[in-house]
Simulated assay, not measured.
Amino acid sequence: MNYLQLDGKTILVTGVANRKSVAWHTAQLLEEAGASVIYSVRSEQRKESLKKLLGDRPVYICDVEHQSEIDRLQQEVSKDYGTLDGLVHSIAFADYSAGWKPYNETPRAAFLQSVNISCFSLMALAEAFKEQWHEDASIVTVSISTTRMAAENYGFMGPVKAALDSSVCFLAKSFSKFSRVRFNAVCPGLLKTSASAGIPGYVDSYLHAEKATLRKQAVQTEEVANTIAFLLSPRSSGINAQGLVIDAGMGINYFDEEILRQGS
């Protein structure tokens, strides 16, 4: 019995970077569950670098920073596939090339670019494919476990992810006027991905977060993928406009005895 009931579903997956990425782990799980996965990557160079990984799977090019490329993606995918049953939005970008700066000194251009790529792209993709979504389609984005903790080294991406979380709610509401399309976010704790490697001081934060989990083991990328697959499936039909936190209990364990002893 296929619990997820994803057989024959067609799902667009964005943001595959390499074998470590959330998008790749999710796509693998979806394929194992019988879904047809369509891949969208940022550039021809990224497509070429993923050649061994993706093989002969259908791969489209779309740099979501540009509306013209989103429109082209919609035209190409709709011509080849028609109806879509889901979207995995696993896209985020922050330009830290100016070096670490306190939040109040965030460069305007870097912040706006990050909002455009990491947040607005969800809105733009949802709208571009509005006529292609199946009535009960499910759209899932990747956020973070909390946007209320001002992690200095995460910089302006915290507020950007907060905007993404809010957009999930507003998209769910606005789409409910004419469809049953669902919007949800997975909100994982710190992960070992190539994207996280570009965040200043990330390793120290990761190790601290791992100690704060109840099981003393960090969240695994596979665990995030499992949750995304569930949210894409009909089994989660009652879940809409939510952010599912996947942090292995970290959020309730900041006063763990072991952590307190180490800090004293």
Results as ranks from 00 to 15, higher is better:
residue 44 E to N: 10
residue 45 Q to W: 10
residue 46 R to F: 01
residue 46 R to E: 11
residue 47 K to D: 06
residue 48 E to I: 14
residue 48 E to H: 15
residue 48 E to Q: 15
residue 50 L to V: 05
residue 50 L to T: 04
residue 51 K to F: 02
residue 53 L to K: 05
residue 57 R to T: 01
residue 58 P to M: 09
residue 59 V to A: 07
residue 59 V to E: 07
residue 60 Y to G: 02
residue 61 I to H: 09
residue 62 C to Q: 07
residue 63 D to K: 01
residue 65 E to G: 08
residue 65 E to T: 07
residue 65 E to Q: 13
residue 66 H to Q: 12
residue 67 Q to G: 00
residue 67 Q to A: 09
residue 67 Q to L: 11
residue 67 Q to W: 05
residue 69 E to F: 06
residue 70 I to P: 02
residue 71 D to C: 02
residue 72 R to P: 02
residue 74 Q to T: 09
residue 74 Q to W: 03
residue 74 Q to E: 12
residue 74 Q to H: 11
residue 75 Q to Y: 05
residue 77 V to M: 12
residue 79 K to E: 13
residue 81 Y to D: 01
residue 81 Y to W: 15
residue 82 G to R: 10
residue 84 L to T: 11
residue 84 L to A: 10
residue 87 L to A: 08
residue 87 L to W: 00
residue 87 L to M: 11
residue 90 S to M: 10
residue 90 S to N: 15
residue 91 I to F: 08
residue 91 I to E: 03
residue 91 I to W: 07
residue 91 I to N: 05
residue 93 F to R: 03
residue 93 F to P: 05
residue 94 A to V: 13
residue 94 A to G: 05
residue 94 A to T: 13
residue 94 A to L: 11
residue 95 D to A: 04
residue 95 D to L: 01
residue 96 Y to L: 15
residue 97 S to F: 04
residue 97 S to Q: 10
residue 98 A to Q: 13
residue 104 N to T: 09
residue 104 N to C: 07
residue 106 T to Q: 00
residue 107 P to M: 01
residue 108 R to M: 00
residue 109 A to W: 00
residue 110 A to Q: 13
residue 110 A to T: 08
residue 112 L to I: 11
residue 114 S to Y: 06
residue 115 V to A: 12
residue 115 V to H: 13
residue 116 N to S: 10
residue 117 I to P: 06
residue 118 S to Q: 01
residue 118 S to Y: 04
residue 118 S to R: 05
residue 118 S to A: 01
residue 119 C to H: 08
residue 120 F to H: 04
residue 120 F to W: 08
residue 122 L to S: 07
residue 122 L to I: 09
residue 123 M to V: 13
residue 124 A to Y: 01
residue 126 A to P: 00
residue 126 A to Q: 01
residue 126 A to N: 00
residue 127 E to Y: 13
residue 128 A to W: 02
residue 128 A to L: 03
residue 128 A to K: 00
residue 129 F to W: 03
residue 130 K to V: 07
residue 130 K to A: 11
residue 131 E to I: 12
residue 132 Q to W: 03
residue 133 W to C: 07
residue 133 W to T: 06
residue 133 W to Q: 03
residue 134 H to R: 05
residue 135 E to L: 13
residue 135 E to Y: 12
residue 135 E to M: 11
residue 135 E to Q: 14
residue 136 D to A: 13
residue 136 D to H: 15
residue 137 A to K: 05
residue 138 S to F: 00
residue 138 S to H: 07
residue 138 S to L: 04
residue 138 S to V: 00
residue 139 I to K: 05
residue 139 I to R: 01
residue 142 V to F: 08
residue 143 S to Y: 12
residue 144 I to C: 02
residue 144 I to A: 06
residue 144 I to E: 03
residue 144 I to W: 06
residue 145 S to A: 15
residue 145 S to T: 10
residue 145 S to K: 03
residue 145 S to I: 05
residue 146 T to C: 04
residue 148 R to Q: 15
residue 148 R to T: 11
residue 150 A to E: 14
residue 151 A to Y: 15
residue 151 A to L: 15
residue 151 A to N: 14
residue 152 E to W: 14
residue 152 E to N: 15
residue 152 E to V: 13
residue 153 N to L: 10
residue 156 F to V: 03
residue 157 M to G: 07
residue 157 M to V: 14
residue 157 M to S: 14
residue 158 G to H: 11
residue 159 P to D: 10
